[in-house]
Write a protein that binds this DNA or RNA. Structure first.
Lengths: 169, 169
DNA sequence: AATTAATTGTTCTGTATCATAACAATCTAT
DNA sequence: ATAGATTGTTATGATACAGAACAATTAATT
């Protein structure tokens, strides 16, 4: 591919090293993105989320909402800050998310009278039914992933490795 | 934690199943987030990016910019669409990113005269020097991760598993 | 050769995500 | 009683990401 900018003289084959061109050993030292942990993690995460989103467009459910409903189902009564922090969501951003779930009749805030500031969060009866359907959809999605990975043992290996990354030093 | 909303009668201990409350077996069927591939992937990816970002704030370099410089270093002369597509960046969004690199004097667009529409992308001499520093910083960051994982073999195992996820069916 | 279709880079726009600051109400500690 | 911390909330800004449309150019079709 010829270009309008003429090539510089080029790295001397045996002269003093040039600092403004990449030497062969420079280029070798530059890792292909395929070997970079963060890059690969991101691509894989994007892929999984993409699949998740496609599977859940019909239910109009986003990953963050899934995780919140999921926590409310297993541990009803937690307050907003607790769920938000556990999921890594800023409590400011949690408000709109919870508003949405409440508007759709899936979840509700109950005033805890031991602390008039806080709300304890619960599924509504409708939310319970919704979560059942949600889990059915999720199971299919997850099973596809496990199959791609090569089985539950491989899934466990993956999660164990991800654990090590996130674990405190 | 007492609450203003009085408890519903509760699931019959031995009566007909209620559809609007979660049974014990329902709750069992709800996976803890810790076992969900997508959730764990996301948390790990966030952790790694966080570490990356902290390490690169001084250089004012974001992950996407890193990846673009990295590709330009290894394979100079590619055109915008090629790099963007390879990195999963929409070509529309690539423009501003490349503008930034060009403004900082790290990279340049050269008109390829075989196709007057396209630009071939290259590092500038300054960009070359920048990439060397960038790679030094990156190496430290990556080595920390590899150490957390338990060594290069574990890193390779992780990447292999991530491969399987992204691989076409 | 003339017309049509496709590609490249670009701008514009909209939406989702994420973080930060400030605030009133309430609770806790001194 | 006062000062300080917490809870939920609003408002706001930055960033990431996706889609539509467009001019210039190239490729394909007739």
């Amino acid at each position: 591919m010829s270009e309008t900018v003429t090539k510089l003289p080029g790295a001397a084959k045996r002269g003093r090293p040039r600092l403004d061109e990449l030497t062969a050993s420079d280029i070798e030292s530059i890792p292909a993105l395929e070997t970079i942990i963060g890059y690969r993690l991101r691509r894989a995460q994007l892929y999984v989320f993409q699949d998740f989103i496609e599977n859940f467009t019909r239910m109009k459910l986003r990953p963050a909402e899934f995780s919140v409903l999921s926590v409310m189902a297993r541990r009803p009564g937690l307050k907003q800050t607790e769920i938000a922090e556990e999921l890594g969501i800023k409590r400011a951003n949690f408000v709109a998310l919870m508003d949405g779930l409440e508007t759709r009749g899936l979840a509700e805030r109950r005033k805890a009278d031991t602390d008039k500031r806080s709300h304890s969060l619960h599924l509504t009866p409708e939310g319970v039914k919704f979560v059942r359907k949600m889990m059915a959809v999720w199971t299919a999605h997850e099973e596809r992933l496990v199959e791609k990975l090569g089985g539950p043992e491989e899934r466990d290996r993956l999660i164990e490795l991800l654990d090590r990354i996130v674990a405190p030093d």
